[in-house]
């Protein structure tokens, strides 16, 4: 994240009404801890012989897949935007 120059921003009154808060932290005793998974960066709950869950691949409608995934940052953005566009019509989200 680039640091922005906000030297004239004064003292923002953040404490009472924070704009950012960490939520839904890791549960104590994550799967990694429980399974003793030795994988160096795994966080997926696998046993490290396999994290594959190809039995269940709930995928979104093929329509949403059009277009190329040129860069993954775009991927994230596209995912979010098409996610939102998929959700809005149902009148819930």
């Amino acid at each position: 994240m680039p640091r922005y120059d906000v030297s004239d921003s004064g003292n923002a009154n953040n404490k009472e009404n924070p704009m950012i808060k960490k939520v839904f932290s890791e549960k104590s005793g994550s799967n990694e801890e429980k399974s003793g998974c030795s994988c160096p960066s795994c966080s997926c709950g696998c046993s490290c012989e396999c994290a594959c869950d190809c039995d269940i691949q709930m995928q979104q409608p093929a329509q949403a897949l059009s277009g190329s995934a040129s860069s993954s940052f775009n991927k994230a953005t596209e995912a979010t935007s098409s996610f939102a566009s998929n959700l809005k019509p149902v009148g819930y989200w």
């Binding site: 994550s30 960066s41 696998c46 012989e49 869950d53």
Partner: peptide
């Protein structure tokens, strides 16, 4: 419908991302 990704999210660990990352879903 959605249990597998929900499990992965719920059981995630807060270890910082490392320079070397295990290749996600692959098995041996």
């Amino acid at each position: 419908l959605l249990e597998n990704p929900l499990i992965r999210i719920h059981q995630r660990c807060s270890r910082q991302l490392q320079e070397n990352h295990y290749p996600n879903g692959i098995c041996v």
